[in-house]
Design a protein around this nucleic acid. Structure first.
Lengths: 112, 112
DNA sequence: TAAAAATACTCCATAGGTATTTTAT
DNA sequence: ATAAAATACCTATGGAGTATTTTTA
Protein backbone atom coordinates (compact mmCIF):
# COMPACT_ATOMS: atom_id res chain seq x y z
CA UNK A 1 0.00 0.00 0.00
CA UNK A 2 1.31 3.41 -1.00
CA UNK A 3 0.04 6.98 -0.71
CA UNK A 4 -0.97 6.76 -4.36
CA UNK A 5 -3.58 4.14 -3.38
CA UNK A 6 -4.94 6.39 -0.67
CA UNK A 7 -5.13 9.36 -3.03
CA UNK A 8 -6.99 7.23 -5.55
CA UNK A 9 -9.32 5.89 -2.88
CA UNK A 10 -10.18 9.32 -1.48
CA UNK A 11 -10.82 10.83 -4.88
CA UNK A 12 -13.09 7.99 -5.99
CA UNK A 13 -14.93 8.26 -2.68
CA UNK A 14 -15.37 12.00 -3.15
CA UNK A 15 -16.45 11.83 -6.78
CA UNK A 16 -18.44 8.62 -6.34
CA UNK A 17 -17.15 7.76 -9.80
CA UNK A 18 -14.02 6.21 -11.25
CA UNK A 19 -14.26 8.24 -14.43
CA UNK A 20 -14.61 11.60 -12.70
CA UNK A 21 -11.88 10.72 -10.22
CA UNK A 22 -9.59 9.78 -13.11
CA UNK A 23 -10.15 13.18 -14.69
CA UNK A 24 -9.44 14.94 -11.42
CA UNK A 25 -6.21 13.01 -10.94
CA UNK A 26 -5.13 13.42 -14.58
CA UNK A 27 -4.95 9.69 -15.06
CA UNK A 28 -6.88 7.00 -16.93
CA UNK A 29 -9.95 5.27 -15.55
CA UNK A 30 -8.54 1.72 -15.77
CA UNK A 31 -5.55 2.80 -13.67
CA UNK A 32 -7.87 3.81 -10.89
CA UNK A 33 -9.91 0.62 -11.16
CA UNK A 34 -6.67 -1.31 -10.86
CA UNK A 35 -5.37 0.70 -7.92
CA UNK A 36 -8.58 0.30 -5.97
CA UNK A 37 -8.65 -3.38 -6.81
CA UNK A 38 -5.08 -3.81 -5.56
CA UNK A 39 -5.90 -1.86 -2.43
CA UNK A 40 -8.99 -3.94 -1.69
CA UNK A 41 -6.96 -7.08 -2.26
CA UNK A 42 -4.29 -6.01 0.21
CA UNK A 43 -6.76 -4.91 2.86
CA UNK A 44 -8.85 -8.01 2.22
CA UNK A 45 -12.20 -6.25 2.11
CA UNK A 46 -14.38 -4.49 -0.46
CA UNK A 47 -14.15 -0.72 0.02
CA UNK A 48 -16.70 0.27 -2.62
CA UNK A 49 -20.17 -0.98 -3.47
CA UNK A 50 -20.36 -1.35 -7.27
CA UNK A 51 -23.80 -2.99 -7.39
CA UNK A 52 -25.21 0.29 -8.64
CA UNK A 53 -23.94 2.74 -11.24
CA UNK A 54 -23.43 5.26 -8.45
CA UNK A 55 -20.30 3.98 -6.70
CA UNK A 56 -20.66 4.10 -2.92
CA UNK A 57 -18.43 3.39 0.05
CA UNK A 58 -19.08 0.20 1.98
CA UNK A 59 -19.10 0.32 5.78
CA UNK A 60 -15.54 -0.96 5.59
CA UNK A 61 -14.70 1.84 3.17
CA UNK A 62 -16.16 4.40 5.56
CA UNK A 63 -13.97 3.11 8.34
CA UNK A 64 -10.96 3.20 6.04
CA UNK A 65 -11.69 6.75 4.86
CA UNK A 66 -11.10 8.65 8.07
CA UNK A 67 -7.64 7.24 8.63
CA UNK A 68 -6.67 7.46 4.97
CA UNK A 69 -7.43 11.18 5.07
CA UNK A 70 -5.35 11.49 8.21
CA UNK A 71 -2.44 9.68 6.61
CA UNK A 72 -2.35 12.00 3.61
CA UNK A 73 -2.75 15.02 5.84
CA UNK A 74 0.19 13.92 7.98
CA UNK A 75 2.34 13.31 4.92
CA UNK A 76 1.58 16.82 3.73
CA UNK A 77 2.32 18.23 7.19
CA UNK A 78 5.67 16.45 7.30
CA UNK A 79 6.79 18.26 4.16
CA UNK A 80 5.44 21.59 5.33
CA UNK A 81 7.07 21.29 8.75
CA UNK A 82 10.49 20.46 7.29
CA UNK A 83 10.31 23.37 4.86
CA UNK A 84 9.24 25.73 7.60
CA UNK A 85 12.29 24.90 9.70
CA UNK A 86 14.51 25.51 6.68
CA UNK A 87 12.77 28.81 6.06
CA UNK A 88 13.28 29.94 9.64
CA UNK A 89 16.99 29.18 9.41
CA UNK A 90 17.18 31.11 6.19
CA UNK A 91 15.56 34.14 7.81
CA UNK A 92 18.06 34.02 10.65
CA UNK A 93 20.94 34.00 8.18
CA UNK A 94 19.49 37.00 6.38
CA UNK A 95 19.18 38.80 9.67
CA UNK A 96 22.80 38.05 10.62
CA UNK A 97 24.01 39.22 7.21
CA UNK A 98 21.98 42.42 7.54
CA UNK A 99 23.51 43.14 10.94
CA UNK A 100 26.97 42.38 9.60
CA UNK A 101 26.40 44.77 6.71
CA UNK A 102 25.31 47.51 9.08
CA UNK A 103 28.41 46.96 11.23
CA UNK A 104 30.73 47.10 8.22
CA UNK A 105 29.12 50.29 7.03
CA UNK A 106 29.54 51.80 10.46
CA UNK A 107 33.19 50.75 10.63
CA UNK A 108 33.83 52.27 7.19
CA UNK A 109 32.30 55.55 8.29
CA UNK A 110 34.42 55.60 11.42
CA UNK A 111 37.53 55.03 9.31
CA UNK A 112 36.54 58.09 7.35
CA UNK B 1 6.37 10.90 -2.18
CA UNK B 2 5.11 7.45 -1.20
CA UNK B 3 4.82 5.52 2.05
CA UNK B 4 7.90 3.60 1.02
CA UNK B 5 9.92 6.81 1.33
CA UNK B 6 8.55 7.41 4.80
CA UNK B 7 9.33 3.84 5.88
CA UNK B 8 12.87 4.23 4.59
CA UNK B 9 13.26 7.59 6.30
CA UNK B 10 12.02 6.36 9.67
CA UNK B 11 14.20 3.26 9.62
CA UNK B 12 17.34 5.19 8.72
CA UNK B 13 16.52 7.71 11.46
CA UNK B 14 16.06 4.90 13.97
CA UNK B 15 19.17 2.99 13.00
CA UNK B 16 21.26 6.09 12.32
CA UNK B 17 22.74 4.07 9.50
CA UNK B 18 21.83 3.28 5.90
CA UNK B 19 23.44 -0.13 6.04
CA UNK B 20 21.63 -1.26 9.20
CA UNK B 21 18.36 0.17 7.95
CA UNK B 22 18.78 -1.72 4.68
CA UNK B 23 19.21 -4.97 6.61
CA UNK B 24 16.15 -4.28 8.70
CA UNK B 25 14.04 -3.55 5.60
CA UNK B 26 15.44 -6.53 3.67
CA UNK B 27 16.68 -4.31 0.91
CA UNK B 28 20.00 -3.06 -0.43
CA UNK B 29 21.87 -0.05 0.93
CA UNK B 30 22.00 1.88 -2.37
CA UNK B 31 18.20 1.61 -2.65
CA UNK B 32 17.83 3.42 0.64
CA UNK B 33 20.39 6.06 -0.28
CA UNK B 34 18.42 6.65 -3.46
CA UNK B 35 15.05 6.78 -1.71
CA UNK B 36 16.26 9.29 0.87
CA UNK B 37 17.89 11.33 -1.86
CA UNK B 38 14.65 11.40 -3.85
CA UNK B 39 12.71 12.32 -0.73
CA UNK B 40 15.07 15.16 0.15
CA UNK B 41 14.87 16.39 -3.42
CA UNK B 42 11.08 16.47 -3.35
CA UNK B 43 10.87 18.15 0.03
CA UNK B 44 13.66 20.49 -0.96
CA UNK B 45 15.67 20.17 2.25
CA UNK B 46 18.34 17.89 3.68
CA UNK B 47 16.81 15.52 6.21
CA UNK B 48 20.02 13.84 7.34
CA UNK B 49 23.40 15.17 8.33
CA UNK B 50 26.07 13.03 6.62
CA UNK B 51 29.04 15.13 7.65
CA UNK B 52 29.93 12.44 10.15
CA UNK B 53 30.02 8.66 9.86
CA UNK B 54 27.16 8.53 12.36
CA UNK B 55 24.14 9.64 10.30
CA UNK B 56 21.99 12.14 12.22
CA UNK B 57 18.71 13.90 11.60
CA UNK B 58 18.88 17.57 10.73
CA UNK B 59 16.47 19.98 12.42
CA UNK B 60 14.37 19.71 9.28
CA UNK B 61 14.49 15.92 9.57
CA UNK B 62 13.32 16.12 13.18
CA UNK B 63 10.34 18.20 12.12
CA UNK B 64 9.59 15.76 9.33
CA UNK B 65 9.86 12.72 11.61
CA UNK B 66 6.85 13.31 13.84
CA UNK B 67 4.41 13.67 10.98
CA UNK B 68 5.94 10.85 8.98
CA UNK B 69 5.37 8.52 11.92
CA UNK B 70 1.80 9.75 12.17
CA UNK B 71 1.22 9.14 8.45
CA UNK B 72 2.38 5.53 8.66
CA UNK B 73 0.40 4.99 11.83
CA UNK B 74 -2.77 6.30 10.17
CA UNK B 75 -2.23 4.10 7.13
CA UNK B 76 -1.96 1.09 9.40
CA UNK B 77 -5.06 2.16 11.31
CA UNK B 78 -7.04 2.51 8.08
CA UNK B 79 -6.41 -1.13 7.24
CA UNK B 80 -7.14 -2.31 10.77
CA UNK B 81 -10.38 -0.33 10.98
CA UNK B 82 -11.69 -1.66 7.67
CA UNK B 83 -10.87 -5.24 8.67
CA UNK B 84 -12.51 -4.80 12.05
CA UNK B 85 -15.79 -3.71 10.46
CA UNK B 86 -15.68 -6.74 8.20
CA UNK B 87 -14.98 -8.97 11.18
CA UNK B 88 -17.93 -7.57 13.11
CA UNK B 89 -20.23 -8.25 10.19
CA UNK B 90 -18.91 -11.77 9.97
CA UNK B 91 -19.61 -12.36 13.65
CA UNK B 92 -23.16 -11.16 13.21
CA UNK B 93 -23.69 -13.61 10.37
CA UNK B 94 -22.35 -16.45 12.49
CA UNK B 95 -24.70 -15.47 15.27
CA UNK B 96 -27.69 -15.42 12.92
CA UNK B 97 -26.74 -18.80 11.52
CA UNK B 98 -26.34 -20.20 15.00
CA UNK B 99 -29.81 -18.96 16.00
CA UNK B 100 -31.25 -20.36 12.79
CA UNK B 101 -29.66 -23.72 13.50
CA UNK B 102 -31.11 -23.76 17.00
CA UNK B 103 -34.54 -22.92 15.64
CA UNK B 104 -34.36 -25.67 13.01
CA UNK B 105 -33.29 -28.19 15.65
CA UNK B 106 -36.17 -27.16 17.84
CA UNK B 107 -38.63 -27.40 14.95
CA UNK B 108 -37.36 -30.86 14.10
CA UNK B 109 -37.83 -32.02 17.71
CA UNK B 110 -41.39 -30.66 17.76
CA UNK B 111 -42.13 -32.53 14.58
CA UNK B 112 -41.00 -35.69 16.36
C1' DT C 1 43.11 1.28 6.31
C1' DA C 2 38.58 -0.23 7.08
C1' DA C 3 33.99 0.84 7.66
C1' DA C 4 29.96 3.02 5.42
C1' DA C 5 27.60 6.02 1.92
C1' DA C 6 27.45 7.59 -2.77
C1' DT C 7 27.60 6.73 -7.58
C1' DA C 8 27.26 4.12 -11.97
C1' DC C 9 25.07 0.68 -14.40
C1' DT C 10 21.83 -2.85 -15.60
C1' DC C 11 17.58 -5.27 -15.58
C1' DC C 12 13.15 -6.51 -14.65
C1' DA C 13 8.61 -5.71 -12.49
C1' DT C 14 4.86 -3.14 -12.64
C1' DA C 15 2.41 1.23 -13.02
C1' DG C 16 -0.10 3.38 -16.42
C1' DG C 17 -1.88 3.77 -21.08
C1' DT C 18 -5.00 2.14 -25.12
C1' DA C 19 -8.44 -0.87 -26.80
C1' DT C 20 -12.17 -3.68 -25.79
C1' DT C 21 -15.72 -6.10 -23.24
C1' DT C 22 -19.08 -6.30 -19.70
C1' DT C 23 -22.58 -4.35 -16.85
C1' DA C 24 -26.24 -1.51 -15.28
C1' DT C 25 -29.74 2.06 -16.21
C1' DA D 1 -28.80 2.29 -26.10
C1' DT D 2 -25.58 4.54 -23.48
C1' DA D 3 -22.51 5.59 -20.15
C1' DA D 4 -19.46 3.80 -16.84
C1' DA D 5 -16.50 0.07 -14.79
C1' DA D 6 -13.90 -4.09 -15.59
C1' DT D 7 -10.75 -6.71 -18.20
C1' DA D 8 -6.95 -7.67 -21.49
C1' DC D 9 -2.91 -6.39 -23.31
C1' DC D 10 1.31 -3.77 -24.10
C1' DT D 11 4.98 -0.55 -23.25
C1' DA D 12 8.14 2.30 -20.83
C1' DT D 13 9.65 3.98 -16.61
C1' DG D 14 11.88 3.71 -12.53
C1' DG D 15 12.65 0.84 -8.48
C1' DA D 16 15.86 -2.49 -6.83
C1' DG D 17 20.04 -5.14 -7.38
C1' DT D 18 25.31 -5.68 -8.19
C1' DA D 19 29.69 -3.66 -8.70
C1' DT D 20 32.52 0.09 -7.81
C1' DT D 21 34.13 4.44 -6.18
C1' DT D 22 34.33 7.97 -2.86
C1' DT D 23 34.45 9.42 1.89
C1' DT D 24 35.43 9.64 6.91
C1' DA D 25 37.18 8.14 11.17
Amino acid sequence: MELRHLRAFLTVAQEQSFTKAADKLFTAQPSLSQQIKDLEQEVGVMLFDRSSRQIKLTDEGQAFLIHAEQALESAKLAVAAARQVAQQKNNQIHLIMFDLGTDLLFAAEMAG
